[in-house]
Design a protein around this nucleic acid. Sequence first.
DNA 1: GTCTATATGAAGATAGAC
DNA 2: GTCTATCTTCATATAGAC
Lengths: 221, 221
Amino acid sequence: MATQKESGAPARRPRTPDTTPAASKADIVLNAARSIFLAHGFSAATTDMIQREAGVSKSTVYAAWPTKEALFAAVIQRECGQFADSLRDMQFESDDITHSLTQLARAYLSLIVSPKGLALYRVIVAEAPRFPELGRAFYAAGPEVVASIVAQFLERGAARGLIDVQTVGFPTAAALFISIVRGEAQLECLMHPDARPSDAQIDRWVEAAVQTFAFAFVKRP
Amino acid sequence: MATQKESGAPARRPRTPDTTPAASKADIVLNAARSIFLAHGFSAATTDMIQREAGVSKSTVYAAWPTKEALFAAVIQRECGQFADSLRDMQFESDDITHSLTQLARAYLSLIVSPKGLALYRVIVAEAPRFPELGRAFYAAGPEVVASIVAQFLERGAARGLIDVQTVGFPTAAALFISIVRGEAQLECLMHPDARPSDAQIDRWVEAAVQTFAFAFVKRP
DNA sequence: GTCTATATGAAGATAGAC
DNA sequence: GTCTATCTTCATATAGAC
């Protein structure tokens, strides 16, 4: 594949250079950095590894980001954005409350116990003291997104007389639902990195969580 | 204070050298290593920092542990043991179910959102892929200890007709209780390292968690 | 066992040619 | 902008004196 010069399209001086013809070098570096940072964490990752993985030289890395810290921040911010996008794409039918909660829980749990989800969590938990803005970004992109979806869902259920959040309120009930779903499953995966959970195991966690939440807040017919 | 030579006590050749007269050098190094590793994580921590913090030379460090990895493992194993000890010391009266659960939850949550508890969690989550045995040790020293305490407590409550764990079983119910207590509180603290939670905030988290658990599993009189 | 001094290697970051 | 080559710094680990 011949490397095209920037005169590919005869448009008159595009101010923002077209990056579509192929992944730009910056994107290649960013993807390589994601791979390395998620695999090794911030401190153990080296710019040499990233440079090698991307197949570029050091100068290309430092041309786009002034420091290793800035590159790391760019990687994590992008990952958080994609994480939030995939959460917002979650759809579920609202006919049966328990069934809908099960669907939502399974989608969320599958995402956060996936290798990518666990790796992102690990590196952010580890580096949040050094990069506080990344901790906030992750919280806003993950738990807060899900919480708002669940809270709206609970409010609609309550309006139909199917749910009673009792004394705790909708936002807290939503946060509790997320905690119940996430809790044991994520912790076990984090602490036993050799064993990957089966789909059946995920279903069991989801079922116990949804049942418990339903015992507390879903009205019996 | 004059540095005493090892001829302090005229006992005849003690086989296991007495370490009580003052903290042994190895203990000093271990404490310094704990401080540095918990503050910076494994990779960002350096043996120079530890050596400086302990006020000893490099040789003293390498005399007791062959590598940085071995020193790290020793530190974390000891921390996990102390963590488990402080959990096992938790006592609570079993007159009132809700009150007892509240006491238990507050003690556990205070521990894990303390600076020390958060730092230990951060470093283990980050390094579990590289040190799988430490992840298992932490899981056994923390969640498993609490789970067994809670499960026994729930069984006694069920025997008295105060609790109905319904379809989920005692071990799962205990794990769910821990997840509900831990969930939102720990996550917020991890992701907002600048803000330390007040006692009132901890009480609010505990109350919401215990209420929800009670809604699901504690029988109404 | 503990110290000072040093070997060895690698990290982050830069200089200068193209 | 991108590359090769290099500079500076500092880490882990070791050698040798006390």
